[in-house]
Write a protein that binds this DNA or RNA. Structure first.
Length: 476
RNA sequence: GGCGCCGUACCCAAGUGGCUAAGGGAGAGGUCUGCAAAACCUUUAUGCAGCGGUUCGAAUCCGCUCGGCGCCUCCA
């Protein structure tokens, strides 16, 4: 079964074929080249942004799980209207301002266990690559100059609109196109390069001082880093038009070859059924949620668990449900670790594990159906739990099961998630108290044994007795 | 007006023409346990927004209606 992903460009679920040439073995493919639209670093990222980045992470992790090599680039937009305005308001330089939010952004990614991209280019460090595109577009007569700014003439690019079906769409009457302050020949043309203004950052170029238009940086970075057609380009649905449409226009007009093979667009997140917005007061940052006591791990799970093509309705109740789900996962891991020596190996364990991994892959191959894969995972948990109850899992079997779980957690990233509470616990003291309690239990002094259990519970330590002994865990 | 996503149990959420509609959360009953906890078992949709149609057969395809959300405004 090949991996298929929904491609906005074709409207179909297309098999992912890195490099565009089909091979028999995944190992023979060149690395999958991926470019993701990253953040504009003018503020803290909100959970909607983070959903998109968690989707990118899932995609990258799954490709690697499937045996593909991956080269992933994600840009940092560090010059635009909002960053310039923000820096001015805070009275700092653009660089100081954007570096602050860039650092916070990377910290958020780390907190959510999102693997770093291989390349994280900044717009302000990619001006040369932009100039290259702009010169080619000028030579070809596709870009034109007006009052020191450069515009892209969409009438010169017949394919314009192929991503968003613009050619088949009518423009809503009365819609204001010209929100830009700059003059254009055709209202639908877009700015490639904006003429320098007083008190705005600018760069020297062969066509005068100025700063980048919004779309040019992505085209430039893709070219600078990969140098040719890339496989996958991701970004949330709102970017399909105009941003990605314009990227295609610039890149394909300048270089005369296909820009991207697969366009993948995760849906938006909404909050309590409504669009997230600052005026509704339902726009949350990661820090907001942590202050409310929600763990990054639960947030990762929640943002991951819904299929990326479906709008995700974020609620606090949802995070609590995620918390409970993860507790079930943790209990399962504890049970596996607690299996005592001396039990017989289960001859069927390999087959159970292989079936599990095959089903997991088969489900995820279908447009990254994470919800289906989670279902497969919980079926497996259930099956193994039952075997543990029946004493049909040896320590050796448990290790094999753990290996399989580690493997799929290379995709999920929430199973062995480290929440940093654990270090503060004095486990030696707890073990001692457990021993004391078990002696009391043996002597049928249940009053004392319950006292010890309550004492630990008050500290957030839960004790659980089983026929293999007593285990403890931290209460969430 | 154009383009697009969606409506599955109390909540979240798979399923893309064919066995009794995954899975998670929550609730109820049971097994185990000194008691708990954990785990396991049973249980909660003769029905998938509504109405028609295509088909031997539809949650799945088509049409219409109702409802939610998004983009067409440098929003992920």
């Amino acid at each position: 079964m090949p991996l298929k992903m929904h491609n906005t460009l074709t409207g179909l679920e297309d098999e992912i074929i890195p490099g565009g040439v089909k091979k028999n073995n995944i190992k023979d493919y060149p690395p999958v080249t991926i470019y993701s639209c990253g953040p504009t670093v003018y503020s803290y990222a909100h959970i909607g942004n983070l959903r998109t980045f968690i989707f990118n992470d899932l995609l990258n992790r799954y490709l690697k799980f499937r045996g593909f090599k991956v080269q992933h680039a994600m840009n940092i937009t560090d010059v635009d209207d909002k960053t310039i305005k923000g820096a001015r308001e805070e009275g700092v330089t653009l660089k100081e301002y954007t570096e602050k939010y860039t650092d916070i952004f990377f910290e958020d990614l780390k907190t959510l266990n999102i693997e770093p991209a291989d390349f994280t280019p900044k717009a302000t460090e990619s001006i040369d690559a932009m100039i290259d595109i702009l010169e080619k577009l000028k030579e070809k007569g596709i870009a034109y100059d007006k009052d020191g700014s450069l515009y892209f003439s969409i009438s010169k690019f017949p394919d314009y609109g192929k991503l968003s079906n613009l050619d088949r769409r009518e423009i809503m009457s009365g819609l204001r196109y010209d929100t830009d302050e700059y003059e254009k020949e055709d209202v639908r043309d877009f700015a490639l390069w904006k003429a320098a203004k007083e008190d705005e950052p600018s760069w020297d170029t062969p066509f005068g001082k100025g700063r980048p238009g919004w779309h040019i940086e992505c085209s430039a970075m893709v070219r600078k880093i990969f140098g040719k057609t890339i496989d996958i380009h991701t970004g949330a649905v709102d970017l399909i038009f105009p941003h990605h449409e314009n990227e295609i226009a610039q890149s394909e007009a300048a270089y005369g070859e296909q820009f991207v093979r697969y366009w993948i667009h995760p849906e938006h997140l909404i909050v309590d059924g409504a669009k997230m917005s600052k005026s509704l007061g339902n726009s949350y940052t990661l820090m907001d949620l942590r202050e409310k006591g929600f763990s990054p791990r639960s947030i990762r799970y929640l943002l991951l668990a819904t299929h990326y093509k479906k709008q995700l309705n974020f609620t606090f109740d949802g995070v609590k449900q995620a918390d409970n789900t993860l507790e079930r996962v943790d209990n399962f891991l504890l049970r596996l670790n607690d299996i005592a020596d001396g039990k017989e190996n289960n001859t069927g364990i390999e087959s159970i594990i292989n079936t599990f991994l095959d089903k997991f892959t088969e489900t995820a191959d279908n447009d990254l159906n994470i919800s289906g894969s989670l279902g497969v995972f919980f079926d497996f948990v259930h099956e193994i739990n039952s075997l543990i109850n029946e004493d049909k899992i040896s320590k050796n079997d448990a290790e094999k099961v753990m290996k399989a779980i580690e493997k799929i957690d290379s995709v999920f990233g929430f199973i062995f998630f480290k929440d940093n509470k654990e270090n503060e616990i004095d486990s030696e003291r707890i073990e001692k108290l457990i021993e004391e309690r078990n002696e009391a239990r043996k002597a049928k002094n249940f009053q004392k044994s319950d006292e010890i259990r309550d004492l630990l519970l008050a500290e957030g330590i839960i004790l659980e007795d089983s026929k293999d002994g007593t285990r403890w865990k931290i209460r969430k």
